[in-house]
C-alpha cells in the first residue's frame, strides 16, 4: 500500500506536479535534516545541505527508475552530500547546545549533561564522515537499517562491523579527551 502511494507520488512529481513534490519534501524533511544535522553539526549548513538533497531529488526524479525504494535513493543522496561536504569545518559549538542554550542558567545537573553532550558532539565531529553518518542514522528512529546499508552500498554484516568500529573510535576519542 505504502509502495503504491510512493510510486504514485513519484509519478505525480515527474509530471511536474509541484504539490506532489512539496508532499515529498514534507514526508522526508525531518529524517533528512536530522541525519545531516547530526553529521555536519552546524544548523545553517545542515539546512543548506538538506535543501541540496531535495534539489538533487527534484533534478534526478526523471531518471529515477524505481528499482530501489524512494527512501533508499534519498539516503544515498544524503550519504553523498555528507561524505562530499567540504564546505565548512564543523563549528566548535555543538548543535544540541544551540537548541538548549537556556539550560545553562538552570540546575548544575543540566549543566553537566550539557557538558557531556558538548564533549560527545566534539568527539563525533572528529570522526570520519562515513562513521558520523552511520552513528547519526543508527540512533534515529525511522531509518531502516537495510535501506541505509543499500544506500551506503555496504553488505549488512559490514555495516554492523563499521558501526562497532565507529563507536570504538568514538569511545577512544572521548577517553583521550577526558585524560
Amino acid at each position: 500500500m505504502e509502495d503504491v502511494h510512493e510510486r504514485e507520488l513519484v509519478e505525480r512529481c515527474r509530471s511536474g506536479d509541484e504539490r506532489a513534490f512539496q508532499e515529498l519534501v514534507d514526508r522526508y524533511k525531518d529524517l533528512v535534516f536530522a541525519l545531516i544535522a547530526r553529521t555536519v553539526q552546524d544548523r545553517s549548513r545542515a539546512e543548506d545541505l538538506s535543501q541540496d538533497v531535495f534539489l538533487r531529488v527534484h533534478r534526478g526524479l526523471p531518471y529515477f527508475r524505481g528499482e530501489a525504494r524512494l527512501s533508499t535513493w534519498i539516503y544515498r543522496i544524503v550519504a553523498n552530500v555528507c561524505l562530499h561536504d567540504h564546505g565548512r569545518a564543523p563549528r566548535t559549538a555543538p548543535l544540541d547546545e544551540a537548541q538548549h542554550a537556556d539550560a545553562l542558567s538552570t540546575a548544575d545537573r543540566q549543566f553537566t549533561d550539557l557538558e557531556v553532550r558538548d564533549r560527545l558532539e566534539k568527539a563525533i565531529a572528529r570522526l570520519p564522515a562515513n562513521y558520523r553518518l552511520l552513528i547519526a542514522a543508527h540512533y534515529l528512529r525511522g531509518v531502516q537499517y537495510e535501506e541505509l546499508a543499500e544506500a551506503l552500498q555496504l553488505p549488512l554484516g559490514t555495516e554492523d562491523a563499521q558501526l562497532y568500529r565507529a563507536k570504538q573510535q568514538l569511545r577512544r576519542l572521548l577517553e583521550t579527551d577526558l585524560q
Binding site: 524533511k29 525531518d30 535534516f33 544535522a37 535543501q51 537548541q99
Partner: peptide, 11 residues
C-alpha cells in the same frame, strides 16, 4: 542524543 528539529518554513 537530541534529534535536531527541522527549521520552520523549511519546506
Amino acid at each position: 542524543r537530541v534529534v535536531p528539529a527541522t527549521p520552520q518554513q523549511f519546506t
